[in-house]
Amino acid sequence: TYYTVKSGDTLNKIAAQYGVSVANLRSWSGISGDLIFVGQKLIVKKG
């Protein structure tokens, strides 16, 4: 599943919304830090 980052989103908010960890969200999407951008597509795998 892809999630497109919206204004005001954080990795914590997105992870909580999908019931996954921030570490997994980073790993799946190839992100090393906490910086995400509006319009960026993140990969989300539901448990």
Rank of each mutant, 00 (worst) to 15 (best):
I36L: 12
W28P: 01
Y2I: 14
Y3S: 00
A15W: 05
S27N: 13
S21M: 06
D34F: 09
K45Y: 15
I31H: 03
V22I: 11
G8F: 05
L11R: 00
A16N: 11
K45M: 14
L11I: 09
K45I: 11
K6T: 09
L25R: 00
V5I: 06
K41H: 10
L42M: 07
G39D: 05
I31P: 01
S29W: 05
V44A: 03
R26N: 05
F37P: 04
T10H: 04
V22F: 03
Q40R: 03
K13H: 10
R26Q: 13
K6R: 11
I31Y: 05
G8E: 05
I43M: 11
V22Y: 02
S32Q: 13
K45N: 12
Y3H: 12
V22T: 09
R26T: 10
N24R: 08
L35E: 15
R26K: 15
S21Y: 04
W28M: 08
S27V: 13
T4C: 10
D9I: 02
L42C: 02
L42H: 02
S7C: 13
S32W: 09
V44K: 01
T1D: 12
Y18D: 00
K6W: 03
V5H: 02
R26M: 14
I43A: 08
D34I: 07
T10K: 03
R26F: 05
G30P: 04
G8Y: 05
V20L: 08
N24M: 12
S29G: 07
S7Y: 14
F37M: 09
G19R: 09
K45W: 13
A23N: 10
V20R: 00
F37R: 09
V22C: 08
Y18W: 12
K13S: 15
Y18F: 15
I31F: 09
D9E: 04
D34A: 08
K41T: 13
D9Y: 02
G30D: 11
I43F: 12
T1Y: 14
K46P: 15
T4V: 14
I36P: 03
T1G: 10
Q40L: 07
T4N: 06
N12D: 15
F37H: 12
I14T: 00
A23F: 08
A16P: 01
S27A: 15
N12W: 13
A23G: 10
G30L: 07
K41A: 09
K41M: 13
S7Q: 15
G39W: 05
G30N: 12
S32N: 12
Y18V: 09
K6Y: 04
V5K: 01
T10F: 03
G30T: 06
K45R: 13
Q40I: 06
V22A: 08
T1M: 14
A23Y: 08
V20C: 10
A23T: 10
Q40P: 02
N24G: 06
D34E: 10
G39I: 06
T4Q: 08
K13L: 11
S32I: 14
A16D: 11
S21N: 06
N12E: 15
Y3M: 04
S27W: 10
K6S: 07
S27H: 14
V38P: 13
I36M: 04
V44T: 06
S29A: 08
Y18G: 01
G30I: 05
I43H: 08
S32L: 11
I43D: 04
G39H: 04
K45S: 13
G39K: 02
F37E: 10
A23D: 15
A16V: 11
V44P: 02
V20W: 03
R26V: 12
I14Y: 01
W28Q: 05
K13V: 08
R26D: 02
I43C: 13
Q40A: 05
S29K: 02
S27F: 12
D34Y: 09
V20K: 01
L25T: 00
T4I: 15
S27R: 12
N24A: 12
G30Y: 06
G30E: 09
D9S: 01
K6Q: 13
Y2K: 07
N24L: 13
K13P: 00
I14V: 08
G8V: 02
S32E: 15
V5T: 03
Y3K: 01
F37Y: 14
I14K: 00
G8A: 04
N12Q: 15
I36D: 01
K13Q: 11
Q40T: 06
V44H: 02
T1N: 12
Q17W: 12
Y2C: 11
I14R: 00
S21H: 05
Q17T: 12
Y2T: 12
G19A: 09
S21T: 14
W28V: 04
I31N: 03
L42F: 03
G39E: 04
D9T: 01
R26E: 08
Q40W: 06
G30S: 09
K41G: 06
A15D: 00
Q17S: 11
Y3C: 06
F37Q: 10
N12H: 14
I36G: 01
A15L: 04
K41C: 11
S21F: 05
L42S: 00
L11V: 07
V5D: 01
V5G: 01
A15N: 00
N12L: 14
Q17H: 11
K13Y: 10
G33Y: 06
G39Y: 04
D9F: 01
V44R: 01
S21W: 05
G8K: 05
G33I: 07
Y18E: 06
L25A: 00
S21C: 08
V44I: 15
G8L: 04
L25G: 01
T1V: 15
V20M: 08
V22P: 08
G19V: 05
K45D: 11
A15I: 02
T1A: 11
I14H: 00
G19K: 10
I31V: 10
G33S: 11
Y18R: 03
S7M: 14
A15F: 03
N24V: 12
G47D: 14
A16T: 11
S29P: 02
V20E: 08
I31L: 14
I31Q: 03
S7R: 12
Y18L: 14
D9G: 02
I36V: 09
Q40N: 04
V22M: 08
S7L: 14
G30M: 08
S29H: 04
G33W: 06
S27T: 12
V20S: 03
V44M: 07
S7I: 14
Y3T: 03
G47L: 13
L42Q: 01
Y2W: 12
I14C: 02
D34Q: 07
N24H: 10
V38D: 06
L42Y: 02
L25H: 00
V44G: 01
T4P: 02
I31S: 03
T1L: 13
G19T: 05
L11E: 01
S7D: 14
V20A: 06
S7F: 13
D34C: 09
A16E: 14
Y2E: 12
S32K: 13
S21I: 05
V20F: 04
